[in-house]
Amino acid sequence: MTQELVFLFIGYAVIWVLLFGYLVFVTGRIRGVRDAVRDMRQELDAQRRQPSE
């Protein structure tokens, strides 16, 4: 009984840890990439204004 529960616990723990870990990782990466995109956009806008002045 207890040994069975240990197996169960390990099995589900593996599933949960990997799934949530992946979710957190990907969501974090989205924020990072979005920040980078925003920076580039600003740089581009600045460049665009410069030559016309």
Binding site: L19, L23, A36, M40, E43, L44
Partner: peptide, 22 residues
């Protein structure tokens, strides 16, 4: 998960494109 990963891919695609434009 698929949706998040998809958004990440779109964002990095856009980043790549912007880098080219810069």
């Amino acid at each position: 998960l698929i949706r998040q990963r998809y958004l990440l891919e779109r964002a990095s695609d856009e980043g790549e494109g912007l880098r080219d434009i810069v």
